[in-house]
Simulated assay, not measured.
Amino acid sequence: MNIAFVSNVVYPFVTGGAEKRIYEIGTRLAERGHTVTVYGRHFWDGPAEMEHDGLQLRAVADERDIYADDRRSITEAIEFAVRLYRPLAAHLDEHDLVDASVFPYFPVLAAAAATWRTDVPLVTTWHEVWREYWWEYLGALGPGGMAIERAAAAVPQHPVAVSSVTADRLAGLGPERSAVDVVHNGVDATRINSIEPVSEGFDALFVGRLVEAKHVDRLLRAVAQLDCEPTVGIVGDGPERDRLEALAASLGVADSVTFPGFLEEYDDVLAQLRAADVFVTASTREGFGITLVEAMAAGCTVVATDHPNSAAAEVVDGAGFLVEPDTDSLADGVDRALAGQQPETPPQARARTFDWEQITDEAESVYERVCGRQD
């Protein structure tokens, strides 16, 4: 097959879950003899069209910051979509299918326009479905975000969701649930376990963007309730960082809680996970939760929040402790994990079920069926 991926940002030149998924699946598909092209912004050094790790990279727009005031830039998404349409349409006869990453939504609309009334099917990969969260994210502009999301869900497509939770939420926008394939995100457990742990790791670790939906404040309050005094690392950055550092000081846990900030190198994050005993997240909105799988692969005991808008329960599935979305429950879960209590399923065994080779098998099967090549 000849497969085109659409993503405004391209891994490894920009790091993030959606673009990493394209890289991991795409490189493996290329190794299997498929031709894979990635349409994105020109984040790499070198010509606008070049080969990298078996992938054909095709820049349709210049490099640009995708965030504005700690939020995803709407103008960036619109500009990329406008730049995408013409080159994708011009090269469409080269491809057997197009897989557009959702979010942002505007490039999906451009890809839908390019493939409209052609024999080239459009696959969409949904990482999250926000629906009512748009009100919280954009305030008075929330209805606009909801309208664009609904528009992206309404175009002719073969939708893929990274979790059943995301698939269910997508079905609430219109597509039949039975029409949504679930292909999870993956992990390279072998690589993770080849990383040398940092010499002085944390007892408990959080990794993620410091935004309100992650509820890191709940983690800090839970730590303050513990009789023991674990060392806690909060790896990541975001608009909530100053407030969280002030909260740690006011709770009296500033001496045991460290904010290393955003770690540029992925291996540095893995080294922290390899050294930690417990991974904790109080997030209530996770379309998948790749750090949960990475933490399990690294051997951490996971403590995560069970919430209808989060795929944590689906991902962890007995290989960690799921708690209610409140401080007391989180404190109890962290306390049990730090005390050495073991989950029903070994975390590393659960992580192996998300191996990228298996995930690529599933994605390849979907692509072949969409292209009519599967019996």
Rank of each mutant, 00 (worst) to 15 (best):
M296T: 11
L330V: 06
E286D: 03
A337T: 14
A349E: 14
A363R: 11
D268L: 12
T360C: 09
A275C: 10
V280T: 08
D317W: 05
I359G: 02
D332C: 01
P308K: 00
D355M: 02
T345L: 10
T345C: 04
V323I: 13
R352I: 03
E344H: 09
V278K: 07
E265A: 15
A351K: 12
P325A: 12
A275T: 07
A351W: 03
L273E: 03
G318R: 06
G318P: 00
V280Y: 08
F354T: 12
D317Y: 04
G299F: 07
T305S: 08
E286Y: 00
A297R: 11
T301A: 01
L270R: 07
A295S: 15
A276D: 01
T284M: 09
P308V: 02
R285P: 01
E362Y: 11
A276H: 13
M296W: 09
A331T: 05
G372P: 04
A276W: 01
T345W: 04
A349V: 10
V269N: 09
R274E: 07
D375W: 10
E265T: 14
V269K: 13
E368F: 06
V278A: 06
L263F: 01
A319V: 10
V303K: 01
W356K: 04
C300L: 13
D317M: 07
V280H: 03
E368M: 13
D268Q: 15
A295K: 01
L270V: 15
D361E: 13
A275D: 14
A282M: 02
Q358F: 05
A351D: 02
S365E: 08
E264P: 07
E314N: 09
D326R: 11
L322M: 12
T301G: 01
G287L: 00
I359F: 06
I359D: 03
T353H: 05
V303L: 03
A339W: 05
G372C: 10
C300R: 11
G318F: 07
Q348M: 13
E362A: 15
V269H: 05
A351Q: 08
D277M: 05
V280S: 00
A351T: 07
R352H: 08
D267T: 11
D277P: 06
D277A: 10
L273A: 06
T345I: 15
